[in-house]
Nucleic acid binder design. Sequence first.
DNA 1: ATGAAAGCGCTAACAC
DNA 2: GTGTTAGCGCTTTCAT
Lengths: 338, 338
Amino acid sequence: MADGDTETRVTIRTVAADAGVSVAAVSKVMRNAYGVSDALRLKVEASIGKLGYRPSVAARGMRGRTFTLGVLLVGIDNPFLPGIYQGIESVTESAGYKIMVGVGAARARTEVTLIEQMIDNRMDGLILVASQIAGETLEHFARQIPIVVVGHHEPAAQGYDTINNDDQRGAQLAVQAFLDRGYSDIAYMTQSDQGDHHADVAPQREAGYRKAMTAAGLADRIRVFRLPQCGLSRDEMLSNVLQSPDRPRAIFCWSDLDAIPLLSAAHRLGMGIPDELALIGYDNSPMAELSMVDLTSIDQDGPRLGKLAAEALFSRMTGRSVAEHILTEPTLILRGSH
Amino acid sequence: MADGDTETRVTIRTVAADAGVSVAAVSKVMRNAYGVSDALRLKVEASIGKLGYRPSVAARGMRGRTFTLGVLLVGIDNPFLPGIYQGIESVTESAGYKIMVGVGAARARTEVTLIEQMIDNRMDGLILVASQIAGETLEHFARQIPIVVVGHHEPAAQGYDTINNDDQRGAQLAVQAFLDRGYSDIAYMTQSDQGDHHADVAPQREAGYRKAMTAAGLADRIRVFRLPQCGLSRDEMLSNVLQSPDRPRAIFCWSDLDAIPLLSAAHRLGMGIPDELALIGYDNSPMAELSMVDLTSIDQDGPRLGKLAAEALFSRMTGRSVAEHILTEPTLILRGSH
DNA sequence: ATGAAAGCGCTAACAC
DNA sequence: GTGTTAGCGCTTTCAT
C-alpha cells in the first residue's frame, strides 16, 4: 500500500514513556480502572492529550471490550430506518460506545456475512434491524455475541431479545380507521412472500388485518394482494389492481414504501383520493406528510424502538441472560387518504 | 458479559492442529501467499471448511490487511446515498472486501470520530461520502490511511482523491432548462451556509447558477434563498418565500431534499405547477418520479460515482500516490415541474 | 516447501 | 498504587 506514513503511530508505549509510567498505568487510566492515584492519572491524561493518543480498537479486541457495537440494517433506502438508528445512537453515544453499521441489502446471505464480520471485528454487541435471517441462525450467533433484534417477531427466542411495535395491533388500527369511515371493502397489500418468514413484519400485519376483518364480521371480504419483489413490474401490477373492475375501495398497505407508489399510480390514473380509493400505509414516513401525498399511516415510533433496543443490548451485555421481548403500541396518524 | 460460550472459538491454531500443519502454513493458505504445495493447501482447506474457520479481523489488523473498507455517509435519510453505496459495493464485493459503514449525521465532530474509529479498526481504506470535514483535516487523515472523497470538491488536494459530478455544470443545465422554457426570473434555493465549505456541493451549484445567469445576461436577476438548518422553521420560510409579492417564478433547488418540501408548500398554497411556480431539483431521487411530485431534476448517476470511488481507492491502495480528481457529467431529467 | 518464533498494541493477572 | 509480564490470534521474517 502507498502511504506517506512519516508519523509513526502513537501507541500505549509511547504514552507510557512520555508520561514516565508503565503501560499498565496508561491502560488503567484509559479504562477508568480501579487503583490509580490522581497524580498519575493527571500525568497520563496530559500525555494522552499532548500526543493525541487513541487506543487501537483491533488490539483492544484481542483481549477486552472494543466499545464498538454493530448495527445491521436491511438497506439504506428505507424511511423506517433513520428513526430507529437515531434512537439507538441516542443511548449508545452517551455510554461512550461507537457504532459501525452493516448494510444488508435485504439478502440473508449478505446479512450472515456481515454478522460474521462484526463478530470477527470483536464488537461488543449487535442490533439487527429488520433482518431476514432465520431464528435458528440467530440463536447460533447469539451464543457468540449479545444480540437484540428489531422488526422481527420471534417471541419464543431464548438467546436474544426482540423489540417490535405491535404490528398486529397496528393493522387492527388501520382496519378500524376504515370501518369508522364506513368502508367494508378493505383489502391488504403486501410484498411477495418469497422466503417470507412468519417472523417478518409484513405477515404479522397481514395476520392483524385478517383478525380485525374477521372480528368485524367481514371475513368473506378479506383480500390480499402480493407485489412481486422486482421493481420492474410493480408499477404495472399496481395499475392492474387499480383498473380491475372489482378493485377494492380501501387498501391497507403493509408499508408506506409501497403505499406511496400505489398512491402515485392512482394519481396517474386520475383517481380521486379518498373518494375513489382510500389508502392507509405503515411507518408514517416523512413523505407521508407531504401535502401532495397526505397519507394516513400507522406510526411505530422508530426512535423509541431504537432506544429500547440499545437499552436491552446494554442490559444483556452486563449480565442479563433471560430473553426480553418487548412490544410497543403503534399510533394511527390521521391524514387525508382515507 | 453473559454468554453461554460453550463452543470455544476456532482459531488458526485449531485449524493447524486439525490439519497437522503449522500455523504459518494456514496463514499462507488464507492469504494465497506464495510457496504452498497443493497437497498442503488441500489439507488446510479441508480443515477450514470442516471447522468453519474465519480469521479474526481484529488480529489480522495488528499486522496485515483486514480486507475491510470503511464508508462514511453523511446520514441515512438522503436519497442520494443508496445509489452511491450500491456502486461502491458492486466493485468491493467482487474484490473480496467487506464494508463497514459509519453514519456521520452531518456533524463534522461525529465524522472525525468515525474516521478515527475506522483507522483504529485498521481498515484498509476509506470512502467519505458528502463529508463535512475540512480539507486540511482530510489531508491529515490521508497520511494515515488511503482516502477517496465523494461529493466534496477539493481539486487541489494532494493526499486523497475526489470523485464528483460536475455540480457547476449541473446547475448550468438547470438554468438552461428554465431559459429554454422562456423563464428569466430564476432564483436559487440552497441550505444555510452555516459552516459551509466552498468545497461542498451546494456552493458549487450556486457558483454554477451564478455563472449561467451571468452568461445569459441575467446577472441582475440573480437571487439566492438560504434555508435555515433547523427543520422547524423551514416550512414557514418556504411558505414565506412563496407568498411574498415578488416571489420568483422559477426556482432551482440545490437538492430534491428541499425541492420536494417546497413543492409540497406550493401545493398547500394552491399554486399550480409549473404555471404559477416552476421548479427544478438535484439528485433525481426516486420521489421525484412519483406522478404527484413529477419533479424535473438533475441526475448525477450515483452508482457510477460509487464505482469510480471504489476503483480509485483500490488503485490508491495498491500503489498510486498522485491524487486523482474526477468530474462526471450530470444529466437533466425532464419532468413536469418546469 | 514448511515450520519456529518474534512481534503487532493492547488487557489483566499478579508481583512488588 | 504501580510496574512486570503473559498472552489474545494473527502475519511475517528467517531457519531448516
